[in-house]
Every structure is written in structure tokens, then in C-alpha cells.
Amino acid sequence: MKMKVIGAAAIAFGLCGAVDTFAAGGNKGAGADDKFAKMDTNGDGKITASEHSSGASTKFQSMDTNKDGSVTTAEMDAAHAGKAGGMKMSSADKIKKMDTNGDGKLSASEHATGSQSMFAQSDANKDGSLTADEMKAAHKKHMADK
């Protein structure tokens, strides 16, 4: 179970907006600094748990195109279509890592839980916020773990 939570946290990192187009305001060409700035809604140079949660929720809502409260493989595939670099892991595998009830879909609750876990793991100094360096380090570790 612990590995499933850790895996879910890593997947949530990609889904929450930290490295997705939500964080870039839909601009696929935006750099990491631009993405960080979009998530840092109060402009203080840090992303709080609340800002992170808000970004995760917005990303989830944008993927849930039929507004039924869950994200399917097809919806996730559509949300990631055309992104630079493509996905390292299939949508089905991402959902499977976070799908705690085994229904084959990602609920808002499952997504939020994974996002919260990822935030906690990424907060290296445990001060309750993420700096750009912490986010970059977490992303680098996530990519190395694949």
C-alpha cells in the first residue's frame, strides 16, 4: 500500500499542474519558471498547499470533460494530446496508480489525495510551501524513478 501511495504521489505531480499546461495557463511553450509563476497565485515566490490544491483541482476539472466527477483514460489522453515531449506513462497506468477503489476511473477525491501526498513529499524543508527549486528537484526525482 505504501508503494501505491508513493506512486500516486508521483503521478499526481504530473496531473496537479506543476508540470502540465494548467500551470502554464494553457501555453504549451511556457518554461518551468512561467509554470511556477502561474501556480504562485499570490506572487510570493512559493507555492502553498492551498495554491497547489487549487491547481490540482483546476487540472482535474479541466480533464473531467463530461463533468461526471471522474476522469477516464480517454479524458486524460485527450487532456495530454499534443503536449511537448509526450507522456512517459500511459493514462491507464497513471489512473491505476491512483485508483484506490479499483473502478478504472480517477475520482476527484483520489486525485486530491495523490496531490496532497505529492506536495508533502516535495516539500523538502517541511515549511508548508514549495519553492521553484523544490518543485524542480521533485520533478527530477519523479523522472528518474520512471
Rank of each mutant, 00 (worst) to 15 (best):
Gly114Gln: 07
Ala92Lys: 12
Lys146Leu: 10
Met76Pro: 04
Gly31Lys: 09
Glu134Gly: 03
Lys97Cys: 13
Ala18Glu: 00
Met89Cys: 09
Leu15Trp: 00
His80Leu: 13
Ile47Ala: 02
Leu106Tyr: 09
His52Phe: 15
Asp44Met: 03
His139Gln: 12
Phe13Pro: 02
Ile95Thr: 07
Ser62Lys: 14
Ser91Thr: 01
Ala81Asn: 15
Asp68Trp: 00
Asn66Gln: 11
Lys97Asp: 15
Met135Arg: 01
Met39Lys: 01
Ser109Arg: 09
Ala120Met: 09
Asp40Tyr: 00
Ala30Tyr: 13
Ile6Trp: 06
Ala137Leu: 01
Asp20Val: 00
Gly82Asp: 07
Glu75Asn: 06
Gly14Arg: 01
Lys38Asp: 00
Ala24Pro: 01
Ser115Phe: 01
Ala81Lys: 15
Phe60Val: 04
Ala92Ile: 08
His111Arg: 10
Ala137Arg: 03
Lys88Cys: 12
Ala37Leu: 13
Asp99Glu: 09
Asp44Pro: 10
Lys126Gln: 10
Lys140Cys: 00
Lys59Asp: 12
Lys4Val: 03
Thr41Glu: 05
Phe36Ala: 02
Ala79Tyr: 14
Ser50Gly: 09
Leu130Pro: 03
Lys94Val: 02
Lys105Ser: 15
Gly114Pro: 05
Val71Met: 04
Lys97Gln: 15
Met1Val: 08
Asn66Ser: 12
Asp133Lys: 05
Met135Glu: 02
Asp40Leu: 05
Met76Ile: 06
Lys4Ile: 03
Ser57Leu: 12
Ser62Tyr: 11
Phe13His: 06
Asp34Ser: 15
Met98Pro: 09
Ala120Ile: 12
Lys28Ser: 07
Ser122Val: 06
Lys88Arg: 15
Lys136Asn: 10
Ser107Tyr: 14
Asn42Arg: 08
Ile95His: 08
Ala138Tyr: 00
Gln116Thr: 15
His52Asp: 10
Gly45Arg: 02
Ala10His: 07
Ala124His: 04
Ala79Lys: 13
Met89Tyr: 12
Asn42Pro: 09
Asn42His: 02
Ala132Arg: 06
Met87Glu: 11
Thr72Glu: 00
Ser91Met: 02
Ser90Pro: 11
Ala137Ser: 05
Phe60Thr: 02
Asp103Trp: 10
Lys35His: 15
Thr41Met: 04
Thr131Leu: 02
Leu106Gln: 11
Gly29Val: 08
Ala49His: 03
Lys140Trp: 03
Asn101Tyr: 07
Ser70Met: 04
Asp99Gly: 06
Gln61Trp: 09
Asp145Lys: 15
Ser115Val: 01
Thr73Lys: 10
Gln116Leu: 14
His80Glu: 13
Ser62Ile: 12
Ile95Asp: 06
His139Phe: 13
Ser109Asp: 14
Ile11Ser: 05
Gly104Asn: 13
Glu75Met: 05
Ala144Phe: 13
Thr21Pro: 04
Ser129Phe: 06
Gly82Val: 12
Met143Lys: 13
Thr48Met: 04
Ala56Met: 05
Ala30Leu: 14
Met1Ser: 09
Lys46Met: 10
Ser50Met: 07
Ala74Ile: 01
Ala120Thr: 14
Ala112Lys: 14
Gly14Tyr: 03
Glu51Thr: 06
